[in-house]
Design a protein around this nucleic acid. Sequence first.
DNA 1: CTTGACCCTGTAGTTGCTATAGGGTCCATG
DNA 2: CATGGACCCTATAGCAACTACAGGGTCAAG
Lengths: 135, 135
Amino acid sequence: MGANILTIGHLARKTDTKVETIRFYEKSGLLPAPERTKGNYRAYDLAHLGRLSFIRRARDLGFSLDQVRELLSLSDNRNQSCAAVDAIANEHRSEIERKIRDLQALKLELDSIIDQCGCGTVAECRIIDSLSPSQ
Amino acid sequence: MGANILTIGHLARKTDTKVETIRFYEKSGLLPAPERTKGNYRAYDLAHLGRLSFIRRARDLGFSLDQVRELLSLSDNRNQSCAAVDAIANEHRSEIERKIRDLQALKLELDSIIDQCGCGTVAECRIIDSLSPSQ
DNA sequence: CTTGACCCTGTAGTTGCTATAGGGTCCATG
DNA sequence: CATGGACCCTATAGCAACTACAGGGTCAAG
C-alpha cells in the first residue's frame, strides 16, 4: 500500500483503537468512509488519522460521542466564534464536577458502612444491615 | 387485594422504582417471581418489598447488578462469615476511589484547556487545538 | 500453493434499564 | 349492565459505546 495510505489495522495501532471501534465510528458518522483498495480494504490517509486522534482524545477526556460529533463539526468551521466550543467544554466540566461530588458522598457512606464491619457472621454483618430496609 | 399483598404499581411507588425495572429485576433473577392473582397480576408480599429495597439501596450505593446478586445470596446465608461481604464492599470502595482520582485528573486537564480559551474564532480556539493531534 | 495475518460484512452480546405495541383486568360511575 | 380509565400483562426494540463472534475474502511470504 502506498506512501501515506493506512490500512485499518495500521490506523488502529497508531491511535490505540480497536479495529471494530473504527468501523463503529464510521457507521456512526464520526469518521468519514475512506476510499477502498481494489481488494475492498479501507484505505485511510493522514486526514483520517488526524480526525480519529481528535475523536480518541476527546473520548479520553470523557466527552460523549454526541459531544465529539459537535466538537468535530465546530472545528470544521474554522472562522466562526468558538463560544459554542467553550460552552460544550464548560458543560462537560460541570458534569464532571457533579460526578466527583456524587462519588465522594458515596465513598463517605461506604466508608462508614465498611468501618462498622466486625467480620463476624452475616447475621450480625453491619454492611448487610445497612443495605437492609428495616434497620 | 388482601392485607399485605401489593401490586407491582404499589411496590414501584413504595421503592421509587419503575414498574418496568421491577419486571426487569425479576427476569434478571434478582427478585423472585411472586405469586399471581387469578387475573394474572403479580402479587407481592413484604419479603419482596424488603428484597427490592435492599436492591435499590445497593444500586444507589453504586454496586453493579452482579455485586447486588452476590450480596443478596450472601445475606441469605445468615450464619456464614461476612468476610465475603466485606470483600465486595471494599473492592467497590477502591473502584470508587479510582474513579474519583480519574475524574479529578480529567477535571484538571479540562480546567487548563478551558482557561486558555480567548473566545475568538474556532481557528484560534485553544480547546480545539488541545484536542487536535499536531499541536 | 499453501499458510497465516490481515481484511470484509453482518449480527448479537454487554449493562441497566426504558419505551413501545398490542392486548387483558378491575373497579367505579352513569 | 355497559363503559371509561387506571392499571396490569407479554414481548420486543432501543439507548450508549463499544466488543465479539461467524463466515467468509485478500495478500504476501516461504
